[in-house]
Amino acid sequence: MANDIYPCLWFDGQAKAAAEHYCSIFKNSKITFENSFVVIFELNGTRFMSMNGGPMFKFSPANSYVVECETQDEIDYYWDKLGEGGVHNKCGWLDDKFGVSWQIVPRILGELMANPEKAPKVVEAFMQMTKFDIQKLLDA
């Protein structure tokens, strides 16, 4: 038996606005269903549901979405687009204008962290960063 698993994001009346915003940022994205309560959408083939649940619950960094980027241009793009109107935090984390937490990270980070000699220097470098800088990580 196959069960689909996908996140549901709880908004206070902004479910459609959030889905439209995210679909405008990620290529190959679309809204697949909507009514006044629920919006189903896909970002790069990953399904999400947003709902207008009311003001009772807020987002927190305890649940974040990771965007792995190949290039510095991709990091810059997602950092600017998702961070617009939100809060930029340390180490590639940001909260968007809806309060959803994102991590904008270079794909090479895992490889750099797997090198026991380089990893401490990489950690030291990225702990000083807000937005990730791939070249500085490579130079660490």
Rank of each mutant, 00 (worst) to 15 (best):
C91T: 12
N89H: 15
Y78R: 12
G110L: 03
D96S: 08
W93Q: 10
L82C: 08
K121W: 12
P116K: 10
H88P: 07
E84L: 05
L82T: 09
M129C: 14
G85A: 03
G83L: 08
Q103P: 08
V123Q: 11
L94F: 11
D80C: 07
M127C: 12
V105P: 04
A125L: 03
A119Y: 14
G86Y: 04
V105M: 07
M113S: 11
D96E: 00
P120N: 05
R107C: 01
G86M: 02
E124D: 15
E111C: 02
K81S: 15
E84P: 08
H88N: 12
A114H: 11
K131T: 09
I104M: 02
E124L: 05
H88T: 03
K131N: 07
W93D: 05
G85D: 07
M127K: 08
E84R: 02
W79Y: 02
P106K: 03
K97G: 02
K131V: 09
P120A: 00
A119W: 14
C91M: 13
G110N: 11
A114V: 01
L82Q: 00
P116G: 13
H88S: 10
G85Y: 04
Q128P: 10
T130S: 15
M129D: 13
F98R: 01
A114K: 13
W102R: 09
F98A: 04
G83N: 10
E84T: 08
A119N: 14
V123W: 06
D96M: 05
R107H: 09
V105A: 09
